[in-house]
């Protein structure tokens, strides 16, 4: 089966940091698989997410990233997004004055245009959007607010999942979507993610806690760490039991800190 995401021997330098942050990451995500990435603070997990999404300043020194078999490296961030890569941000960004409904519809239409589909009119968009908002228990007045401006931490994370539900990516990368959520919100967001678990879609879920994974039941668990300061890489891989072991013992005891 063709992999959705194939990361091979990826070395990444962050321009502002002036040094290698990832040093030889390998990861294969096949359709339907959900890969959890855990690891100590500062190991390079968000850097991996940004690099996959094509952020400027995250320079690939070596290795390759392919989506559905084709390399992403020459594509700009917006083209990667339209090709099906979605990143739920650890820290979603405020866009003052930019109306949520307008933002969502513009994003959806950018994707539709890229696929050669006609743009959604306002009514069709609102119908789709309201249905997804209801699943995430988001109130109607959300649509008239400004993107992420004045949102609580939990509202920001829910809004990321709403965008994912509307954009229907091939590859979904969630960066600490569980942090900042209260217990009920965590359940709602996890249910939102599970509703999008199709046999075709691939997942990379960055998290520090097993709680989220209890809901999501990952197929694979990896630990990304930077034990020698040379750069982050995947130091352990396993099934869900690895997350349980990590939660019980911590990074130090596992010998990866």
């Amino acid at each position: 089966m063709q992999a959705i995401l194939e990361i091979s021997d990826l070395k990444v330098q962050v321009e502002e940091a002036g040094k290698a942050i990832l040093q030889g990451v390998n990861l294969t995500v096949r359709p339907g698989e959900l890969h959890a990435i855990m690891g100590p603070n500062g190991a390079g997990k968000s850097t991996l997410g940004y690099t996959l999404a094509g952020r400027d300043g995250y320079e690939v020194l070596a290795g390759d990233i392919t989506l559905d078999g084709s390399s992403l490296l020459d594509m700009d961030a917006d083209a990667r997004a339209r090709a099906g890569v979605f990143l739920a941000f650890q820290y979603p960004v405020e866009l003052p004055g930019v109306n949520v409904a307008n933002f969502l519809r513009t994003a959806m239409n950018a994707h539709r245009t890229a696929r050669g589909e006609p743009e959604l009119d306002v009514l069709a968009f609102l119908k789709l959007c309201r249905a997804e908002m209801a699943k995430l228990a988001m109130p109607e007045d959300f649509l008239s607010r400004s993107v992420n401006t004045g949102f609580s931490g939990g509202e920001k994370k829910r809004f990321e999942i709403l965008q994912m539900a509307l954009l229907q990516p091939t590859l979904a990368i969630l960066d600490e979507t569980d942090s900042g959520l209260d217990i009920d919100a965590l359940r709602i967001v996890a249910a939102g993610v599970n509703a999008l678990r199709t046999p075709e879609r691939g997942w990379v879920v960055i998290t520090h806690y097993q709680r989220l994974l209890d809901y999501l039941q990952p197929t694979h668990v990896h630990i990304l760490a930077n034990p020698d300061g040379m750069g982050g890489r995947i130091v352990r891989s396993g099934g869900p039991e690895l997350a349980a072991q990590l939660e019980a013992e911590g990074y130090e005891k596992l010998g990866v800190a």
Binding site: A53, G54, D78, A81, P92, V93, T106, A107, Q163
Partner: peptide, 15 residues
């Protein structure tokens, strides 16, 4: 900010 431009790009919007 670069953060804002990247956030929009990640949602598929050309610069």
């Amino acid at each position: 900010s670069d953060d804002q431009l990247f956030y929009c790009a990640q949602r598929g919007l050309p610069e």
